[in-house]
Design a protein around this nucleic acid. Structure first.
Lengths: 272, 272
DNA sequence: AGAAGGACCAGTGGTCCGTA
DNA sequence: AGAAGGACCAGTGGTCCGTA
């Protein structure tokens, strides 16, 4: 029987070796002390469900033009990576950590390009909203499936839901504290960290921002015009909640102590 | 092959005799002239789907206590109609058109009770929101399935989604123009109209309100604290859109003519 | 190993239509 | 015939995990 813990990111699952990712230097200006739970200790919250992944039957013999392997156009980012209008849908080039303004070289895409995708989604949303209003139909306020479908239909097939949801919090940091975001990018690039590490590191400064706003991450998102159209990622919400719990516990332990929104609390998990 | 037009309300479907419901006197203070499309002519918009209704198999032999037919408790409304805490889930008594303050007699429920259900739903929503915030989970802003489930779980099994959605626009009128709502109730009671007719008649004054707010029915709902938690009913949205089209058409036909938000436009359908 | 995204799934909004 | 509501369905939010 498979243990059904979430396996996304660093949510430690059983039968997985413990994750000891970065020892965050926290270049975002908000220094961070211990921060144990950023690496581990936040496993299992709920989700007692099981997947059973029904291997998709590929009986279609139609596809002879499966992959145009003549992929030597090095336009990289900005244009959107691989795949001309040709056939056989290429994957996008993977992201790498780039400094602000830096163009990724080789078959890679930079972070400015990543953030640009969020702006594009916003424009697609606005178009969907305009059409909906004109037709007297329900008007979405967020980037929904409908918007992703519209984007694809409009030729922006390099936009897809899993990708955009995956990096939402990174974009959030970029929106809410561009200075901090830029500093983080530079630091992680210099250290030669991969995109996954950088992405993980984006959580903490956001949690600190939420702390300064009474832990209301929804309010933080909604207050920003370009961010309010994105759903708050589940994990960011959970981290904020967890850190608030820690803060409350710390407050009741050290009565009268000023609780700041910097660094993580002393206790690593939820013990108290 | 079944024609798949919507059959809800007065949306004229084929193989149905033409509906000529009320000749609305429009007691709501907003007089109404022709208003042809309130009765007919608004058939087919989209929805080209088919249902096939899979007759539920009832193989359970468990239910001996199917119906406690000793139903002579005449508590009527306020308490919620039939069914003590007993067994075999009774249906709620049907609504009748009552004046404000009037208590329905016999096995009937009045409209004050109907509106009271909306207030109850609001309270359930608030509880769900409180719990969600406390747990750091996504917090609903509307009366969702989750809220209906919570209501049922809390013992308010007389609250259900189809019913609440069915009368939302009636509650909307009650919220937005209680005077008009009350007048309409009195008029329809006096005329001996049934609940369905009264319900139909609630649309028009709402469309007029929307007209006065630039046809933005969503904005009208959202501006009212007790109404903003309810989804705008599809049909009300469509009626507003249709009437706006008529208004625009009339405006371009009679240039310089002041368009009021009273009564329906001259043209009955969408012809122009 | 790191990453992109097709495809899946539980639970939603919406309301039809078998039921009383 | 009029009405209440169980139950259904298309399309959603969310993200896993087979793929490159």
């Amino acid at each position: 029987a498979l243990d059904a813990l979430s396996q996304e990111d660093d949510w430690t699952g059983l039968s997985e070796e413990p994750v000891h990712q970065l020892e965050h230097t926290d270049a975002a200006g908000n220094n961070g002390g211990g921060g144990g739970y950023w690496d581990a200790g936040q496993a299992k919250m709920k989700k007692p469900q099981q997947r059973r992944r029904k291997k998709q039957m590929v009986t279609s013999v139609e596809t002879d033009d499966d992959m145009n392997e003549g992929d030597d156009d090095d336009d990289g980012n900005g244009g959107g990576g691989g795949g001309v209008l040709g056939i056989g849908k290429q994957r996008e080039h993977p992201f790498i950590v780039t400094e602000p303004g830096e163009v990724a070289r080789g078959k890679k895409n930079g972070l400015d390009y990543l953030f640009h995708l969020y702006e594009q989604c916003r424009e697609f949303l606005i178009q969907v909203q305009t059409i909906a209003k004109d037709r007297g139909e329900k008007c979405p306020t967020k980037v929904t499936n409908q918007v992703f479908r519209y984007a694809t239909k409009s030729g922006a097939s390099y936009i897809n839901k899993p990708k955009m949801r995956h990096y939402v919090h990174c974009y959030a940091l970029h929106c809410l504290d561009e200075e901090a975001s830029n500093a983080l990018r530079r630091a992680f690039k210099e250290r030669g960290e991969n995109v996954g590490s950088w992405r993980q590191a984006c959580y903490k400064p956001l949690v600190n921002i939420a702390c300064r706003h009474g832990w209301d991450i929804d309010a933080v998102f909604n207050a920003h015009p370009r961010l309010s159209i994105w759903y708050v990622p589940t994990k960011l919400r959970q981290l904020c909640h967890l850190e608030r719990s820690n803060a409350v516990a710390a407050a009741s332990a050290l009565v009268g102590n000023g609780i700041s929104c910097t660094g993580s609390s002393a206790s690593g998990g939820l013990g108290f």
